[in-house]
Amino acid sequence: MATDANTTQLDGFVFPAWVNKMVLLGLASAGLIGGYVATVGFFATHPKVINVGHMPEQPVPFSHALHAGKLKLDCRYCHNTVDKAAHAAIPPTATCGNCHGGKDRVKEGATLAAVHLKSEKLTKVRESLESGEPVEWLRVHELPGFVYFNHSAHVTRGVSCVECHGRIDKMEVVYQAKQLSMKWCLDCHRNPDESLRPVDQVTNLGWDPQGEELKKVYDEELEKAFGHLGRSVVGDSNDLRLFYYDGKAGASKAGEFAVNPLVNKQNLQHVFAEKIFGEDPKLADGDGSGDISLAEALLYLKDCRSSPTRKDLGVLLKNAYKIKPKQNCSTCHR
């Protein structure tokens, strides 16, 4: 229907008026729906949502709350290879048999009473002890096949079970408490200070000293790491008579410390900074001058020791035992 040459009137198709409102409405709803899908998608695929909360029903209803919580059994009684190998091995049925052996066990004259002989919850344990076939537990914490996590590397350096497994001593049925995603692990590898604790407290899941108690722990660790340095800090910054003494050279008088031959005044500050503050000496750089004067070091040490935080304890442990969590890919992937 070619229109004739000269009259070019606009009789072509023109959208009805309501189309304008419709387009605005459409854009707005598209935005909303899009936003909704994005947020649900983000949270739905968030590792915390996907990983946390896996609680399979085990063949034997073993309660950590009872054994580790109430009875205060140490984790390493059952998971005895946690500080020796990559896997914190699930105990053999024989370990359960020590108490639930089902037979009165005579050991060095002490009759070991068989606990819950008849409980039908333990039928599988007894069957396993008879038949030698293992109890088929269900895996709770599952890392992908290409990730090589090593328990002993963490447990022997002061990372407690609670950091990754949560308060498992309060769980009736074990569930995965933390997301254990790569970002989650890297966050801790990048600043491990809050997660470090003295090695002997690793299986004490409830260990969370505050205030005075934390101060006592801090001093103990300071002493263990750097000898008597911490006990008596005297003098002010210029005629300082505090010297670094690592316990070998004999102390001349009580309260007086002999100079450690290796350390002269100039690099005492360096030794101090390097020993205590590790990579980020800026913690003690009060006046922002960039370098830490001895006074600032002492000042920092004082308030550290006066009201230490878990982070300070972490920095101290990191330096005392040369804990340098690696961030190379081959640490976990190979």
Binding site: A85, P92, A94, E136, L138
Partner: peptide
């Protein structure tokens, strides 16, 4: 659900995974 099957009686010096 994946299974973990430990020993019933683990030999003396055996460390699983080593």
């Amino acid at each position: 659900n994946k299974k973990i099957t430990p020993y019933a009686f683990r030999p003396e010096d055996r460390v699983p995974g080593d």
